[in-house]
Design a binder for these strands. Structure first.
Lengths: 195, 195, 195, 195
DNA sequence: CATGAATGAGTATTCATTCAT
DNA sequence: AATGAATGAATACTCATTCAT
């Protein structure tokens, strides 16, 4: 019997991440993605509604994974608020370190996507940030963290900072050692919010 | 002969900032920019070489202004390193507060531009960041600031954080009060780097 | 998959000859050629790289055909030099008589093309003329033809004369009877070169 | 008093011949012609109705000059028909030798022009050819020339042959010595028409 | 499911011509 | 007459999407 070989949807997504990272979303050609995925141009439309749908799926997968992994990581252990913050930062760095192209797509195209009609990843994105927010609130309650800053601002603050660093790193991995970035970020964040 | 009336170049730039902010660079049409500037389509090409040239000029003007104003601000007074950091943050917030469209273009398109061939704003951009770097180094020398973080990382860290916040604010000014953002940023930054 | 039906490349070439003949190369619109070929505008670019590529292909086909047919015509028979000259003239007149539009494109656009970068038809064009040159040289050797003229000059002389006549005829077939042109040309050429 | 210096109309025509010769009529830009003529773009339209009007004027001047000079040349002397043919050929070669750019415009653009609405040079062109035709008819009458060819055909035949040779020469003057061309043409023509 | 040839809407850019000065 | 800034119509070419096989 003929076994379904490979996973074309996955192949297309992987190819798209690579092409989007290198050419940017707007300059990326569907035919090039199809070539890279070793699939016919028309086949892309069997798995995705249109070009933007591919990008949406990439972000959906990304935030779903980040949320799920963070949740499972936090739930098992009994971590202090500061340790939870560390865990979040580590997770984000780990995910993007193993896939720099994904980091580039993330930093370059998320803004673009946020003006799109349906933001399907919004759900996981918010839940991911909510986990961090909870850690902060607990930390403030325990009098470990200052209350001199707005938590909604903080969410965006930290994510923007990390995104920008990942962008610089992904574009030129040699310009900044990733472990130095990670260490500095942890210090700046935790020192920044401490009482 | 027909003599230049008004300042068409300025009109086109202003229109372009508005259109780029609302439609995004790639979806922005030259004809729409020309309409908004009350100028014929072809006239755009009297003042700019092509579409990208307009975007380059916007960023060039922006970073040139930020650098020049920061420099003059710092040179006159005798500010402590922490006050200098405050001044930088205030300046960025002030510029974008008075022109939210510019903020949107800044956050959405700077990445796009950095992959372009000639990055004309690079010069002023680097000089602006160098001023901040100097403040940090002096602060560390005076034992006011920690040396637990990498300065190159910090440059990107803070700019990315602010950019992300401005993006959220410019997209929906009501979601976050700007003064709350500004105050929180100042706290997180200064608390983050302090010894 | 959707499979190539008919011969779209041929249809486009035929349409292009007609449109180029009537409107001139520079005024010819790709969309009009596509319409005439009953093909979508974009399809033209599946078969040709750009507008000039179409013209190049027309000339390539033309000279390739002229050379091939002349060669096979000369090789079989045992013709005298004068008869070979006749054969060349007849061939050129026959080809253009059956396709006056092609004659018009030939006379109007060959100069234009000769300033273009890549002249793909050059090869067959030269080989065609070389066959004629050989006939002349043999005729001179046999003391049938005069040596009072330069052969390189003659090549251009005769082709230019014929081109000009075809141009007049193709523009207005009624102004000159083609058989009268053909007869006169043969006389003038052969009388002109004879000893 | 301010004396009109130079002759702008003449300057523009001279510039146009140069630009048309080098870039071809369709690629020639009015602004470039104006630059070359050291005149403002708009000034071109003080002397010519539009771009094509410039080309028309070039040909009008050319054929007017050819006709006038030929006429004065023939009228004074008492030349045999064969000498008259020589005189025509010499005149054409002389005019284009002294201005190769004009030769290029002549050979490249005359066809283009002949499809235009108003062919203002037609008058002188016909009269020039009529002078030659008369010489032929006289020569036939004197039994010097053959009557095995059509005179209308011959007109076009000889002009086309010369045009083609001038084209080759003007594009690459070193490829063919002009005196060799001239000598060969005279031989081929006179030998071709003789009894 | 898969293919890739075919489609045709969409747009940056050019440049002959105009016109206010 | 002269200027050259301003105009805006015009078009080759691209590429996301469709669809006949």
């Amino acid at each position: 019997m003929r076994v379904k070989e490979g996973n074309k949807e996955k192949d297309i997504l992987t190819a798209a991440i690579s092409i989007f990272a290198n050419d940017g979303y707007h300059n990326a050609k569907i035919s090039k993605i199809a070539d890279e995925a070793k699939v016919a141009t028309g086949s892309v439309y069997l798995y995705f509604q249109n070009k933007e749908d591919i990008l949406q799926k990439i972000f959906e997968d990304l935030w779903s994974r980040l949320y799920t992994e963070l949740k499972s990581h936090l739930s098992n252990k009994n971590l202090s608020p500061a340790e939870q913050i560390d865990a979040m930062i580590d997770l984000v760095f780990d995910v993007f370190t193993e896939n720099p192209d994904l980091a580039l797509v993330f930093v370059n195209e998320q803004n673009h996507l946020q003006r799109a009609e349906a933001i399907r990843f919004q759900n996981f994105y918010e839940k991911f940030l909510d986990l961090g927010e909870t850690a902060i609130i607990v930390g403030i309650g325990k009098n470990n963290f200052s209350d001199n800053f707005d938590i909604k601002v903080f969410r965006i603050f930290i994510l923007g900072a990390i995104r920008s660093l990942l962008h610089t790193w992904a574009n030129n991995p040699k310009s900044l050692a990733l472990n130095k970035i990670r260490q500095s970020v942890k210090f700046l964040i935790k020192n920044g919010i401490q009482k």
